[in-house]
Deep mutational scan, measured.
Amino acid sequence: MQGVVKVNSALNMRSGPGSNYGVIGTLRNNDKVEIIKEVDGAYEIRFNGKVGYASKSYITIVN
């Protein structure tokens, strides 16, 4: 499943599905991501070869 990031500035990509996990990357508006699955209000995603988590509130599914 594919998604597009929709933010005003940037969205943190984290090592786990919550803000208490470390930041492993930054997503920008209109970045395209692969959605692997939904976990606790976040999506597990793949972006630029990395797998991490981002809030589903800022990712629009575009299948």
Score class of each variant (00 low, 15 high):
residue 1 M to H: 10
residue 1 M to L: 13
residue 2 Q to G: 07
residue 3 G to A: 06
residue 3 G to D: 01
residue 3 G to I: 02
residue 4 V to T: 07
residue 4 V to G: 01
residue 5 V to G: 05
residue 5 V to L: 03
residue 5 V to K: 01
residue 6 K to P: 01
residue 6 K to I: 11
residue 7 V to W: 04
residue 7 V to R: 06
residue 8 N to A: 12
residue 8 N to F: 07
residue 8 N to M: 10
residue 8 N to C: 15
residue 9 S to I: 13
residue 9 S to L: 11
residue 9 S to W: 10
residue 10 A to Q: 14
residue 10 A to K: 14
residue 10 A to V: 15
residue 10 A to Y: 15
residue 12 N to K: 14
residue 13 M to P: 02
residue 13 M to N: 02
residue 14 R to H: 14
residue 14 R to G: 03
residue 14 R to A: 05
residue 14 R to C: 11
residue 14 R to E: 03
residue 14 R to F: 13
residue 15 S to W: 06
residue 15 S to E: 11
residue 15 S to F: 05
residue 15 S to R: 07
residue 16 G to F: 04
residue 16 G to P: 02
residue 16 G to S: 09
residue 16 G to Y: 04
residue 17 P to L: 08
residue 17 P to E: 03
residue 18 G to P: 03
residue 19 S to Q: 13
residue 20 N to G: 13
residue 20 N to D: 13
residue 20 N to T: 08
residue 21 Y to E: 11
residue 21 Y to L: 05
residue 21 Y to C: 15
residue 22 G to D: 15
residue 22 G to E: 15
residue 22 G to H: 14
residue 22 G to I: 14
residue 23 V to K: 07
residue 23 V to E: 04
residue 23 V to R: 04
residue 24 I to M: 06
residue 24 I to C: 05
residue 24 I to V: 12
residue 25 G to K: 04
residue 26 T to L: 13
residue 27 L to E: 00
residue 27 L to N: 00
residue 27 L to A: 02
residue 28 R to D: 06
residue 28 R to A: 10
residue 29 N to V: 05
residue 29 N to G: 08
residue 30 N to I: 02
residue 30 N to W: 08
residue 30 N to L: 09
residue 30 N to H: 09
residue 31 D to W: 04
residue 32 K to A: 09
residue 32 K to W: 12
residue 32 K to F: 12
residue 33 V to M: 02
residue 33 V to W: 01
residue 34 E to W: 14
residue 34 E to H: 10
residue 35 I to W: 01
residue 36 I to T: 05
residue 36 I to D: 01
residue 36 I to Y: 05
residue 36 I to E: 02
residue 37 K to P: 00
residue 37 K to D: 10
residue 38 E to G: 04
residue 39 V to Q: 06
residue 40 D to I: 06
residue 40 D to H: 09
residue 40 D to P: 07
residue 40 D to L: 11
residue 40 D to C: 12
residue 41 G to Q: 09
residue 41 G to R: 05
residue 41 G to W: 12
residue 41 G to N: 11
residue 41 G to F: 08
residue 42 A to K: 10
residue 42 A to S: 14
residue 43 Y to N: 00
residue 43 Y to Q: 00
residue 44 E to W: 08
residue 44 E to I: 11
residue 44 E to L: 15
residue 45 I to K: 00
residue 45 I to T: 00
residue 46 R to P: 01
residue 46 R to D: 05
residue 48 N to Y: 05
residue 48 N to Q: 12
residue 48 N to S: 07
residue 48 N to W: 05
residue 48 N to K: 12
residue 49 G to W: 02
residue 50 K to Y: 07
residue 50 K to T: 10
residue 50 K to V: 13
residue 50 K to E: 10
residue 51 V to W: 06
residue 51 V to I: 13
residue 51 V to E: 07
residue 51 V to N: 07
residue 51 V to C: 09
residue 51 V to D: 05
residue 52 G to Y: 03
residue 52 G to D: 02
residue 52 G to N: 01
residue 52 G to C: 04
residue 53 Y to E: 02
residue 53 Y to T: 02
residue 53 Y to V: 03
residue 53 Y to P: 01
residue 54 A to I: 14
residue 54 A to N: 01
residue 55 S to C: 14
residue 55 S to R: 06
residue 56 K to N: 05
residue 56 K to G: 04
residue 56 K to A: 10
residue 56 K to D: 04
residue 57 S to C: 15
residue 57 S to H: 14
residue 57 S to Y: 14
residue 57 S to E: 15
residue 58 Y to M: 09
residue 58 Y to C: 14
residue 58 Y to F: 13
residue 59 I to C: 02
residue 59 I to K: 00
residue 59 I to F: 05
residue 59 I to V: 07
residue 59 I to L: 03
residue 60 T to G: 06
residue 60 T to F: 14
residue 60 T to Y: 13
residue 60 T to W: 13
residue 61 I to R: 06
residue 61 I to E: 05
residue 61 I to H: 04
residue 62 V to W: 06
residue 63 N to I: 12
residue 63 N to V: 13
residue 63 N to E: 13
residue 63 N to S: 13
